[in-house]
Design a binder for these strands. Structure first.
Length: 543
RNA sequence: GGCCCGUUGGUCAAGUGGUUAAGACACCGCCCUUUCACGGCGGUAACAGGAGUCCGACUCUCCUACGGGUCACCA
């Protein structure tokens, strides 16, 4: 068989050669050790939260080493494509501070960055493979393949197009020509020289040394519409874009031997591989892949809930590099990009997505922000997701900043807020329209005592008093109604008192804020002002 | 089912032949505090199971179990 002639028959319009592209996309001129990475999603209209993991690894590795990070759109499956999805992907990741150096919008010398725009390139290499006997056209119909699969399942053998089951591998030139003339569609298949009895040794930077069964299947390289499958596109694109590190989900591990063969057949140098484990969630006692329908699986969830992007990044980092939390404790205010990201610190096993941990990380990150930052971020979020809150906070920005600033900036900042969505509930009692008198009171305070306490406080509250004087006033009220003004005295002889100063404080807190948990009461009362404070105390006394 | 990857407390995890098997989240207790928080101190809780190698295995090998992935003209 004259493969050269067959290649010409199959792809008469392809006049470029691999040399042409090699020259057009030369090795990158980068410093020693610089990594070139890429994130390559399909524009399906759903941006998965899990994508943040490989993306973050790609971005860190590239930018930390003075390399390049690309975004390549893998739109070779027109059936799954969704309008506008490309921009959604870019916007989503940029929201989390991911900077792409090259992409369909950022440009770059190694494009096009959309696979549907690279058809001629793939076909050139397809033609090259045919010319070298590494690929052949297959005219089997979908029905024939279904039938083959059924037969293999029946016989309990590995399904697939390989070995004795291939039909089109050795068609003669004349047969191919006749099929083409008859207008029969064909796919281009890889002529595998692999043997399922053999193992290939491959090193994965995360998983370590692997021994995987050789690929013996003649996989499809080009679909009948001339568009490549993932595998072909991966080899051609990552070679031509000069990717040094292929970072992807571990679902690709089984096809790795095939990719190794392909790179060999194409004469490409193999890139380094890093396969990242999938994010899981717990269902009963079983770990399940975080799937589309789960809360938190879609990235838009984090927008609408009001997760600050730096909080999410922080959490992602704790899962990606096991020593990140230690580093953060040692460098609480350092820019996250200063963290030395290490491939070695990545876990080979999959982890569970832990919402509680995420929230804890959020609280820590938010607690480190100053009032101005919080104000700007919350209003920015609320503008889109909670117009009522936005209107409330922007009505009097200084008032809002004072509220959001309580307990902030000290050595032991409060950690009340994890998500912006929670801010409304948190600040609600500062706004009359959201405040409701609470009838709930500490159970161990007699209703009659409660009335006495609240009335006495309302009558004596002096908003000009300093914190000590203010508290002394409360202490005096406590003692006047038979409550211990000192916790130690109370603990020593609890039977001597009707309650303690803590109970009294709680009465005031509930009356003024409507809740059992709030920031520092002295600050809260000063911000609210004497008029509201006394009015609320009297209202609560009545209730 | 075949093939592949994985398995340290409820969760995330340190650990690379000899450790009282870190730390974080969650949970519980105590302390601090005017209270809720915050913070501090402490506690419950783990090497999936079985063989083997070795003076000695969480660490190495094998088997089993469990979990996950993959077997498309989808990525």
């Amino acid at each position: 068989m004259d493969y050269q002639k067959l290649a010409q028959l199959l792809y008469p319009d392809i006049d470029k050669t691999p040399e042409y592209y090699e020259e057009k996309y030369p090795p990158r001129d980068l410093p020693e050790g610089a990594k070139v990475t890429r994130f390559a999603p399909s524009p399906t209209g759903f941006v998965h939260f899990g994508g943040l993991f490989p993306v973050t690894v790609c971005e860190r590795l590239a930018h930390q080493s003075g390399g390049v990070f690309m975004l390549r759109i893998e739109d070779t499956d027109s059936k799954r494509e969704v309008e506008g999805a490309e921009m959604d992907i870019i916007r989503a990741f940029e929201h989390f501070g991911i900077r792409f150096d090259e992409s369909i919008v950022h440009g770059g010398d190694y494009g096009p960055y959309r696979q549907s725009d690279r058809k001629a390139i793939y076909q050139c290499y397809a033609k090259y493979l045919v010319a070298n006997g590494h690929a052949y056209p297959c005219f089997c119909s979908a029905e024939e393949l279904d039938e083959l699969r059924a037969r293999q399942e029946e016989a309990k053998v590995t399904p697939g197009y390989y070995g004795e089951y291939v039909r089109c591998r050795d068609l003669s030139y004349e047969e191919v020509e006749a099929n083409l003339k008859a207008g029969k569609p064909f796919v281009l298949r890889f002529r595998s020289n692999g043997n399922a009895e053999n193992k290939v040794k491959i090193t994965d930077l995360i998983k370590g040394n692997l021994e995987i069964t050789e690929n013996s299947i003649d996989h499809v390289l080009l679909k009948s519409d001339g568009i490549p499958t993932y595998h072909m596109a991966h080899a051609v694109d990552d070679h031509l874009m000069r990717t040094t590190h292929v970072i992807r989900g571990e679902e690709w591990l089984p096809s790795l031997p095939y990719h190794v063969q392909l790179f060999q057949a194409l004469g490409f140098r193999l890139p380094k591989y890093m396969h990242i484990s999938q994010l899981m969630r717990l269902e009963g006692t079983a770990k399940k892949k975080l799937s589309k329908r789960d809360a938190g699986a879609g990235i838009t969830y984090y927008f609408s809930e009001g997760y600050a992007p730096e909080c999410v990044t922080e959490y992602v980092m704790t899962l990606l590099n096991s020593n990140f939390e230690d580093w953060r404790r040692a460098n609480p205010n350092e820019d996250i990009d200063k963290f030395p990201f290490a491939i070695k610190k990545m876990s080979p096993s999959g982890c569970l997505f832990d919402m509680a941990k995420l929230n804890d990380v959020c609280k820590n990150v938010v607690s480190r922000m100053d009032a101005e930052t919080v104000y700007n971020k919350v209003t920015g979020w609320a503008e889109e997701y909670d117009p009522e809150l936005h209107a409330l906070l922007t009505r009097d920005p200084d008032y809002s900043r004072r509220i959001l600033g309580i307990g902030r900036g000290g050595a032991k900042p409060r950690k009340d807020i994890a998500l912006w969505k929670e801010v409304k509930e948190y600040v609600s009692f500062f706004f009359e329209e959201l405040f409701t008198v609470s009838a709930e009171m500490p159970a161990n305070v007699e209703p009659a005592d409660r009335v006495k306490i609240l009335t006495a406080f309302a009558e004596s509250y002096d908003e000009t008093a300093d914190q000590t004087a203010w508290f002394d006033g409360i202490r005096a009220i406590a003692e006047s109604v038979g409550y211990a003004g000192d916790m130690k005295a109370y603990k020593a002889e609890p039977e001597k008192y009707r309650g303690h100063i803590g109970d009294v404080s709680m009465c005031l807190r509930v009356a003024v804020t409507g809740r059992e948990s709030s920031p520092d009461m002295y600050e809260v009362m000063k911000i609210l002002g004497a008029e509201k404070v006394t009015a609320r105390c009297l209202a609560a006394a009545k209730a």
